[in-house]
Nucleic acid binder design. Structure first.
Lengths: 204, 204
DNA sequence: AAATCAATCCACGAAAACAAGGATTTTCAT
DNA sequence: ATGAAAATCCTTGTTTTCGTGGATTGATTT
């Protein structure tokens, strides 16, 4: 029996998943949660093999939750099940060390296959996801400082204002801006912001 | 018996919905579709009261589909069930004349209530949606020309380039830009693009 | 018929961003 | 310890955007 916990903030989808997975006698759904907090409670009280998790939960980002799970329960294998198909999220989660990444609009059977494979120790990503990764290899990879500046630019700050906020020279923040434009392959700040959002680098 | 058709491109959610709705003896699920095309086929061959529909289908935008449905089958009541909570989409769909707008992360029971209410001739939107509408009243309302210019700005064109493309003076496209910044309450072009995307004015 | 709004155009000056380079110092991993 | 990458700062000149404040035409609504 593979012991599974599901975190998913859409009650309807969660219900559907629970029902579907329960039909497979290899699986045991030991708990479901609508948010990160109750998910952690369940994990603390039960032995779990696989955590199936959505990325945008009401109380915590999937990124944070998976880091916590990875450090507190290193043996639990995480499979991301989300509708975020942006390269940033895919990369971030794989870097954290999740074992699977699937999109919600994929067939149900794929989840079962992935659970088996991940339980056996493999890392499994759907065809769709690997295509997105392939399309973006070698492309955008920004540093933490650049990410910081990016967010401030998106909020409408000028080089000078960014400089004041980060205690750096406006020339530096201008350099970061230029690098961001370059890395995103954009022609100016406006279109850079657009592709950064498209790729998931700016959350909201 | 209320005759219901569901269009939803997430197979898992579609399955869950079908199961859940079937349990209510007042409802008859006469068909489900994973895309717009097969949805229209079903509607042509069956008498339908209510169409429950997602917004981003693989073959057609929810906006287009609902327009087609409204003109071909004026009696069918449409309930939007989506995860798009941006004011632009909400407004657009309500303008087209849908009878309901719900978010996917709301409780299942709300769907049932909404179906009954809409079937009775009411227009029903969830609390969450009406809050978003309230928060945005009187705010952003851009013209078709501004929308056109907005898209070009987001693609990285300058005033001059936009002017060339639209056969207008660069001063005009600059005026549009300024109005957009003003209407979105942004401080410059970059943050204007961000909020425009957040509000759903720039699709992709 | 009057009013409103969309779309177009304008001026002028100030502020900010862009282009195309280069250079130094931290930080971090091997 | 040494390279590589990241973060910092720099120059010069050009282009673009921003701020403020208009004006005109045409379509639509009341």
């Amino acid at each position: 029996m593979i012991k599974i916990v599901v975190v998913e903030d859409h009650p309807m989808l969660l219900d559907g998943l629970k029902n579907a997975l329960s039909k497979n006698s290899d699986f045991e759904i030991i708990g479901t949660a609508l948010n990160g907090q109750s998910c952690l409670t369940i994990l603390e009280e039960n032995n779990t093999d696989i955590l199936l998790m959505d990325l945008n939960l009401p109380d915590i980002k999937g990124e944070e939750l998976s880091k916590v799970v990875k450090s507190k329960f290193p043996k639990i294998k995480i499979i991301v099940l989300t509708s975020h198909d942006q390269i940033y999220h895919i990369r971030t989660m794989l870097d954290i060390g999740v074992s699977g990444y699937l999109l919600k609009n994929e067939d149900y059977s794929l989840i079962e296959d992935t659970i088996y494979s991940v339980y056996d120790g493999n890392i499994e990503i759907s065809q769709h996801i690997s295509e997105i990764i392939a399309k973006n290899t070698g492309k955008v990879n920004i540093s933490t400082r650049e990410k910081e500046v990016l967010k401030l630019i998106a909020d409408g700050l000028t080089n000078q204002e960014i400089a004041d906020k980060l205690f750096i020279s406006p020339l530096t923040s201008d350099s970061h801006r230029k690098n961001l434009i370059l890395k995103f392959g954009a022609s100016n700040t406006a279109s850079m912001i657009k592709t950064a959002i498209e790729m998931g680098f700016i959350s909201n």
